[in-house]
Amino acid sequence: MMPKKIALSAIAALSLGLLAGCGDVTLYEPGVYKGSGDETASEEAAERRADALRDRAQAAHTDR
């Protein structure tokens, strides 16, 4: 009985490890993207470039 239990727990641990990609576990929160980060996706980045892009649109797309 005992070896069976040990084998089962070993399999459970192994499959958990496999599922977790052998470590480096990221916990998920709904609505929060946790892939490799992109600092250009942030509010600040969008804010920072908004004016330049607006001017650019006015300059590039209006008829001269």
Binding site: T40, A45, R49, A50, A52, L53, R54, R56, A57, A60, H61, T62, D63
Partner: peptide, 23 residues
């Protein structure tokens, strides 16, 4: 290009300004 403050090239270089992009 966006990080440089520029818009998509396809739209910026459209000769007839048919394709427009931005805010």
């Amino acid at each position: 290009r966006v990080e440089e403050g520029k818009l998509p090239l396809c739209a910026e270089m459209c000769a007839t300004k048919a394709l427009i992009a931005g805010d």
